[in-house]
Design a protein around this nucleic acid. Structure first.
Lengths: 339, 339
DNA sequence: TTGTACGCGTTATCAG
DNA sequence: CTGATAACGCGTACAA
């Protein structure tokens, strides 16, 4: 546990001032001659000097810490997203403080407070369902907040999301055109705005095709494969005539397909299943799963780009971006099997 | 973007010195009278004062940041673990800087450096396969490093892991006793020490039962359901006579079960499948999956406890803890179906 | 019980 | 191009 070298130590060894060392460290071009620069770099490596972010942050009142607050870490879509955001930020030299609110508003607010204490440069937030615009006001003034995936109702912050309504509408319409009349909607939690958007697409697709939808075909369930299994079994207890399942998420669809195997229904032949998310497992599954995808990579890119833009121009008006999902039609919803 | 209040501002409003404010904030009992305490707290709320961790960290040379470096964020076992560790640390007042090395040593070392720059109080590390004890030496002297799940060969750091050998041995032995003679081992990557431990358990269980194991029954695959599907199909291309699959992870087992459905084999009747991890989906799956579990909660508890202990006593000798897995025998490996 | 004064390691400012 | 010096906001002896 030897004490670590400081700028002053480096300066002394290189026989320059601490200001010069600082200039070298920050790569301020033209502020320091090539020769002294080398001398300083040499001293840095001799002393095994490590930059102290803490001191720099205090002095410049600007940390390089980005807060990342999310409601759930059990859904692979979110964790892959986090991984990608994390990597992109790291490449830009930012560190990420992670927090998981577990769908608990109080906990989320606590974490936002933590970010403030740490002087987070910005906060990326995927909020709990009960988060309103007002809940964010307390933080927005200090550091920019960028919300993603889950709308908070009013948009005073930047928001990057997915056009869920359209994707659900498109999927359902296509199923109707393929001849399905008994189409179920499975998954999501009751209070979810996102679910409401997808469900509305499902409903409108019915109505625009002059088809009645049935309340008993709508089921809630948690975000897990086993919840999808349970919901699917429940669905077929209610009604044996369903021929298509529009699932709220891929993991729910995986569960549904597992349950359908068990119920003796051949997915892609006797019954269609669709998902949402575009997980990489969807393609390799048997049969391959039809799903609405916004590539996680693309989403992460948008989020990080928006963040960087916002850091440059803090006072620009908030931006709302809705990404269009691409629907991969695969074997789980084969056309023509349902005439 | 109004400037935030400082201790000095609070002191001025409460008509006390900054030292008194500091004492109130840090809850140093007996150092300040109840009356002034209230005055200070009042001023804090009036000014909407927020504690500045950065300044505190610089002054005391002790951050409250814990670095969490992990190799993979796509496996639910790890993400659930992270979520739990994160929550426990937050409860103790620590913030977590997350980094994902993506199985890349260079990237991992970069992140460890980042942690050092941020003066991390400690680092929790689930290392890449090619990490050796020497790779950690550079960081260990500065802040304690606690490794988990993946052994690094030599143990100069604290380590919390799972007794993989024993669990795999127990599972395989039981399958042998149930009458299986053609037992495959699926999953894991070639260089994985952890996989070697589990595989050794599988091999030794064969040998102790005077049973030959077959090299063609051993397959590598990535950590995903679709990789499990591919590997299982490959296995049955090689040999139709396998009656049991010992999978390296639950997600691989889920994939295997999906593939087996497709191949027309009834899991739990004609063929046995076992997993590793004890994911919550294992129980709800159809049929329910036999799996070796070390409860994530328990593991997280051990890791955090070890961390806290280490912070208290930095100079105690490193501790290695191996947790014993509990095997849940479920329908996917029903006894008696293979006579 | 309260106040004063200084230092943590860096960066910004300005003068040379 | 380089150097001296003063901040940043908080913690902690030590003095009162």
């Amino acid at each position: 546990m030897t004490k670590r070298a400081t700028v002053a130590d480096v300066a002394a060894l290189a026989k320059v001032s601490s200001a010069t060392v600082s200039n070298v460290i920050s790569n301020r071009l033209g502020k320091v001659s090539a020769k002294t620069r080398l001398r300083v770099l040499d001293a840095i490596s001799v002393l095994n000097y490590t930059y102290n972010e803490t001191a720099a942050a205090l002095r410049s009142n600007k940390s390089n810490i980005i807060g990342l607050v999310i409601h759930d870490l059990s859904n692979p879509y979110y964790t892959e997203l986090i991984a990608k955001i994390n990597r992109k930020l790291a490449k830009k030299g930012y560190a990420t403080i992670l927090a998981c609110s577990d769908e608990n508003l109080e906990s989320q607010q606590g974490y936002l407070h933590l970010m403030k204490r740490h002087n987070a440069l910005a906060v990326l937030l995927c909020p709990t369902w009960d988060t309103t615009s007002e809940h964010l006001d307390a933080w927005r003034d200090l550091s920019p907040t960028i919300t993603f995936l889950r709308p908070t109702g009013s948009h005073d912050s930047d928001f990057i999301g997915i056009d869920n309504y359209q994707a659900a509408y498109d999927i359902t319409s296509r199923l109707v055109r393929d001849g399905h009349t008994q189409i179920a909607f499975i998954g999501g939690s009751q209070s979810s705005r996102l679910r409401r958007q997808r469900l509305q697409g499902w409903k409108d697709a019915h109505e625009d095709a002059a088809l009645r939808w049935d309340e008993t075909h709508i089921l809630y369930c948690a975000s897990s494969m086993s919840a999808g299994i349970k919901a699917t079994r429940e669905l077929f207890k209610r009604d044996q005539n369903v021929t298509a399942l529009v699932c709220y998420q891929d993991i729910v669809a995986f569960g549904a397909m597992n349950a359908l195997h068990f119920l003796g229904k051949k997915v892609g032949e006797e019954i269609a299943v669709t998902g949402f998310d575009g997980l990489s497992d969807a393609e390799g599954w048997l049969p391959s799963l039809t799903t609405a995808e916004v590539q996680i990579e693309v989403l992460a890119e948008h989020i990080v780009d928006r963040l960087l833009l916002r850091l440059e121009k803090p006072d620009d008006p908030p931006n709302v971006t809705l990404l269009h999902a691409h629907i991969h039609w695969r074997n789980s919803s084969l056309y023509g099997g349902f005439e």
